[in-house]
Design a protein around this nucleic acid. Structure first.
Length: 113
DNA sequence: GGTTTGACCATAA
DNA sequence: CTTATGGCCAAAC
């Protein structure tokens, strides 16, 4: 039985601890730049929580978090709606080709480094 | 409180 | 290039 908001209530937009941190970091990414799940994970402590970062992104149901600036390692797009992500990125001047961010290295945004 | 599930990543073959 | 595998862990159920 899938999740039914009508009966189980709304999902937490800004979840506890982990989600909150992920969202906060993603909001720090300036327009025209991209970051990776791994980088966000590393900023949170371990690269290995990259999955959870993705999970946190999936929980986003709000436009306040620029989720489209988060891509997979190597500049690959891995969002659920790659189409929408490409559109959003190109709108900000990011060149995307074949689900790959061009000039990824220079467009990459790092948090603590 | 155990099981399932994920928008991942690095490594190996 | 592809496929397989292990790892890690929060949140949902």
């Amino acid at each position: 039985m899938p999740y039914d908001p009508a009966r189980h209530g709304p999902r937490r937009i800004v979840g506890p601890g982990f989600h909150g941190k992920v969202h906060a970091l993603v909001k720090q990414v300036p327009a025209g730049c991209v970051t990776t799940y791994g980088d966000v994970a590393e900023a949170l402590g371990s690269r290995r929580v990259a999955r959870q970062v993705g999970f946190a992104m999936a929980a986003i149901d709000d436009a306040s978090v620029p989720w489209w600036r988060v891509v997979a390692a190597g500049g690959c797009l891995a969002a659920r709606s790659v189409r929408a992500q490409v559109r959003a990125l190109r709108k900000e001047g990011v060149v995307v080709k074949d689900e790959r961010v061009q000039e990824f290295a220079s467009r990459r945004f790092t948090f603590g480094d």
